[in-house]
Computed example of a mutant assay.
Amino acid sequence: MLPQSHPNYKTVHRRFQTWCRAETLRRALKDIANELRDNGMLDEEECFIDATFAIAKGG
C-alpha cells in the first residue's frame, strides 16, 4: 500500500530487491550509525534489534 506519489508497487519491489542484492541499504544504515556514533548521538548500550512477523495466508 504505497502513496499515490510512488511508482507502481512492482517497480518499488524490484528496486528494493536490487538494493538488497547490492547491499545498498546495509551500507546506508551503517553510514548513518557511524555518523551518529561519531557525533555522540548513538549509545550502543541502548541499542537492540526487534522484529515482528505476521503470517500472510495464500489465496
Rank of each mutant, 00 (worst) to 15 (best):
L2A: 08
F16I: 06
D50I: 12
A22H: 13
K10Y: 13
P3V: 00
R21I: 01
L25N: 04
R27S: 09
N39Y: 06
L2H: 02
E23M: 04
F53Q: 04
C20L: 14
A51Y: 08
T52D: 11
R27T: 01
L29F: 11
Q4C: 05
I49D: 07
R14S: 14
T52A: 07
L42A: 08
L42T: 00
K30D: 07
I32H: 05
G40F: 01
A22E: 14
A28C: 15
Q4S: 12
A28R: 13
K57H: 12
D31P: 01
S5D: 11
F53R: 02
Q17T: 13
Q17I: 13
P7V: 00
V12Y: 01
G58F: 08
M41P: 00
P7H: 11
N39R: 09
A33Q: 08
T24N: 07
I55W: 06
S5W: 07
C20T: 06
K10W: 04
C20V: 14
E45G: 15
L36C: 11
R37E: 03
M1I: 12
N8C: 08
N39E: 08
Y9R: 01
G58A: 10
E44V: 05
W19E: 13
A33F: 00
T24V: 06
L29Q: 05
D50V: 11
V12F: 01
I49T: 09
W19D: 15
R15H: 05
L42R: 01
E45S: 15
R37F: 12
D43L: 10
A54I: 02
H13M: 14
R37N: 06
I49V: 15
K10R: 12
T11M: 02
N34L: 05
R26S: 03
K57W: 08
L36T: 05
G40T: 00
T52H: 11
A33G: 02
A22N: 13
F16H: 10
G59V: 02
F48A: 06
R27W: 04
A54E: 07
G59K: 07
A56W: 08
T52C: 10
T11F: 02
I32A: 02
I49M: 08
R14T: 14
N34D: 07
H6D: 01
K10T: 10
R14E: 13
A22D: 14
P7R: 03
